[in-house]
Amino acid sequence: MRLPRWMLSRWFIVPATLAAVVLGWNLHVAANATGEVRGRVVDATGRPVAGATVLLFERSFVVNTEKQRVVTDAAGAFRFQGNASHAVQLQADAPAGKSERVTLRLLFRAQDADLPAPLVIAR
């Protein structure tokens, strides 16, 4: 099969490649933009903390605004739904103490994400 000459011109190849990449990326975004943020809360010794309240802050220009809070289950896991931002902060608040605020930056808005390291409750 021979391609027509105009298809081999860089004026076709480059825009076509770009268009393909953009299309592919948008499909990927559409498939993964569920707005779920998952993670775990542990204490200083690494044991899961159940019943801790986890706060989700959405980053805007100068302030981080609290958007949602959930409570961890028996395994110390939590799950937020409907996150619409591309940069959030997470903080766990348990009777024993608070965790650091961890920033989670996403590749696109409402990306489906797992917190790489658990939130650690410190005293």
């Binding site: 591309h86 940069a87 930056r105 996403l106 590749l107 696109f108 808005r109």
Partner: peptide
């Protein structure tokens, strides 16, 4: 290296 600055700009 990370791409998040670009993400910020985009939005």
């Amino acid at each position: 290296p990370h791409p998040y600055n670009f993400v910020d700009v985009w939005y």
